[in-house]
Each structure stands twice: as C-alpha cells, then as structure tokens.
Amino acid sequence: MSTTTTPAEIDNLKARLKDTWAAGDYDHFSRYMEQGARIFYEQLNVPAGCQLLDVACGSGQVALWAARDGAHVTGVDIAPNLVKRAQARAKAEGLNVCFIEGDAEALPFEDASFEFVTSLIGAMFAPRPELVARELLRVCSPGGTIAMGNWTREGFVGQMFKTFAKFIAPSGMPAPVLWGVENIVRERLGPGVSDLQMARRYYSLTYPFLPADVVEFFRQYYGPTNRAFASLDESAARKLREELEELWTAHNRGGNELTVVAAEYLEVVAIRA
C-alpha cells in the first residue's frame, strides 16, 4: 500500500475486510478444505506440548488439528464471527484452544511467545505484508518455526483471482499472491531467519458436485466471492459466473460427478534467527 495511507483509510480498509470475511459462511466453506489443512500441518512435524500460534486461523482448520495432537494452541483472526465458530468447535471437541480476535499486522502477543507460528492461506490477505512479516518474526521464539501456505499467482487460485480482477476494481493493496513468490518471501522474511525453505505443493480442492455448483457454493459461502458478486450488476455477475464455470471445468479432474482441482501453493518454512 502507499506510504501516504492515512490511519483513517487503514481503519476503513480493516472494517471492509472484517465485513468481507463475515459474509457467507466461511466455517461451512472451509470444511471442504480440512484434509488439505491436515496435510499442510502434518508436514511441519509439530511436537506435542509446544506453543503454537495460528495466524488468520479462520474457524480453526490448522489450529484444531494441532490441538488434537497435543500442542498448546492459540488462534487469532480478524473476523469475530470466525473466532466464535472456532471457539464453538473447540468446545464441542473438548479441546483447550485459545481463539481470539486480532490483526495479523499487530498481533496481541509478547515477543518470542511461540515455538511455532503458522498461517495457511490466511495472513497472505492482510493489506500491509511488511507488517505481517515483522509480526510473524516478532512473536516467534529464536530457533522457532514460521510456516505459511500461500496461493501462487501461476496456480489455479491465482488464475481465479485474475478472473475476478477483470470485473472488480483493484483494492490498492499489494496482491496477496505475492506471498507465493519465492524471492518476495525471501525479501520479507529473510533478514529475520537463519534458514528458509520453500516448496511448491498442491492443495486438492474437492467437491461432491459439478463446477457450476462449485461456483455457486463459493458465491454463497466464501466471503470474498460473495461480496464480489454482490458488487456487480446482473449482466457483469452473469459474465463472471460464466468465466468462473469455464475455469473450474477446464481444470476439473473429477469426471462427471465430482469437481477435483489441484491448486498450487507455496509452502514456506522458516527458522527464526
């Protein structure tokens, strides 16, 4: 974002971001992505008993897996409705997880509070990435691990973002998919880490219905898609739906009954210096 952005403009943007993630029903939406979250989490080899912070935790996809495996987990998200859903899910399972409302750009924790700091398809959407990088490094203890999963611009979700960009005016903030570019991640985290490993991996987006219904599912339940469609007139919304259906159909490997798309993301694993 521009260095001349005023505090009032930032406050307005944050309010819009909260409204965006409150739209739809992200908890319902995210249930179809839980196995991918499990795969991301398992690759980190988090030891039982460690202190783990999940940033932009949504309704608990990574945080709940970690808590089930015995980690001491805290989750933070900007959207209060998602925090409440995560709290309810933890309570239903009898898990002792602390979920709180908070901003990835100003995390409400002391320095070096956590041995693991994770963010799966979450912190990448904050508007000021330099502040996100600073905060991830600050709250991680020396020798601790920072792990992110970020959509790439070349991958399927990056292509979906490009489709939306044809219809929606740019926000003025850096593109979230820049967190999926290796040299940019190195610039953002590099000075604060002693080791930085990155690998391109694939998230299986799997739905028990066909691409046209997947687009409708996103429109109903995924906040950013819900708000995007709501901002368009009938003609533009119809054209956007057509282009999204074409994109999902072109990438579908699920046959005539399922939608299965491999979405590339950048796995980032850094050791705090």
Rank of each mutant, 00 (worst) to 15 (best):
Leu196Arg: 10
Asp111His: 14
Pro191Glu: 07
Val76Ser: 08
Pro191Gln: 05
Leu52Ser: 08
Gly158Arg: 12
His28Glu: 13
Val83Lys: 00
Phe109Glu: 12
Tyr202Ile: 00
Thr5Pro: 06
Ala273Trp: 13
Val214Asp: 05
Arg219Glu: 12
Asp103Ser: 06
Leu266Tyr: 13
His28Tyr: 14
Pro170Leu: 04
Leu44Lys: 13
Asp69Gln: 12
Leu196Asp: 08
Gln61Pro: 00
Leu53Phe: 11
Trp248Gly: 05
Asp103Ala: 02
Ala66Gly: 10
Val117Thr: 14
Arg153Cys: 10
Ala165Pro: 08
Glu9Ile: 08
Arg134His: 07
Arg68His: 14
Ala228Asn: 09
Ala63Asp: 06
Glu110Phe: 01
Gly192Arg: 08
Val177Pro: 03
His28Gln: 10
Leu232Lys: 05
Arg200Thr: 11
Met1Cys: 08
Ile184Lys: 15
Met173Ala: 15
Gly192Cys: 10
Lys84Ser: 01
Val73Arg: 02
Phe114Lys: 04
Trp65Asp: 11
Phe109Gly: 12
Gln87Arg: 07
Glu216His: 05
Arg16Ser: 13
Ala273Tyr: 15
Phe218His: 12
Arg128Gln: 10
Tyr202Gln: 01
Pro211Met: 07
Ile39Asn: 09
Phe218Ala: 10
Tyr203Arg: 14
Thr74Met: 11
Phe217Ala: 02
Thr5Asp: 10
Asp213Ala: 07
Gln61Thr: 12
Val62Trp: 00
Val76Tyr: 09
Arg188Asn: 00
Glu242His: 11
Gly255Phe: 10
Val193Tyr: 00
Ala263Pro: 04
Leu258Val: 12
Phe109Asn: 11
Lys239Ile: 00
Ser113Glu: 03
Met148Arg: 03
Met173Ser: 15
Pro47Leu: 04
Leu189Phe: 02
Val215Tyr: 11
Trp21Leu: 01
Tyr222Ser: 12
Val132Trp: 07
Gly143Leu: 07
Arg219Met: 08
Ser171Thr: 12
Phe161Arg: 08
Cys98Arg: 12
Pro142Tyr: 04
Ile10Thr: 14
Leu44Thr: 14
Leu95Val: 05
Ala212Tyr: 00
Leu258Pro: 07
Pro108Thr: 01
Asp195Gln: 13
Asn183Gln: 07
Asn12Leu: 13
Tyr265Asn: 11
Ala15Tyr: 00
Ala123Trp: 07
Phe161Thr: 08
Asp54Val: 01
Glu34Tyr: 14
Thr6Asn: 03
Lys162Ser: 15
Ala212His: 04
Ser235Cys: 15
Val177Lys: 02
Ala8His: 06
Arg38Ala: 15
Met148Cys: 12
Gly255Glu: 10
Ala67Gln: 00
Glu264Leu: 03
Lys14His: 13
Ser2Met: 06
Lys166Met: 02
Phe109His: 14
Leu137Asp: 03
Phe164Gln: 06
Leu189Gly: 01
Ile100Met: 14
Ala263Tyr: 04
Asp233Gly: 12
Pro80Met: 05
Pro129Ser: 03
Thr206Ser: 14
Ala92Pro: 06
Ile78Lys: 02
Ala22Ser: 15
Val55Gly: 02
Lys239His: 00
Glu267Tyr: 10
Trp151Lys: 05
Thr74Cys: 13
Gly122Pro: 09
Val55Asp: 03
Leu107Ala: 04
Phe217Tyr: 11
Ala270Ser: 12
Met1Gly: 10
Glu34Asp: 15
Lys166Gln: 11
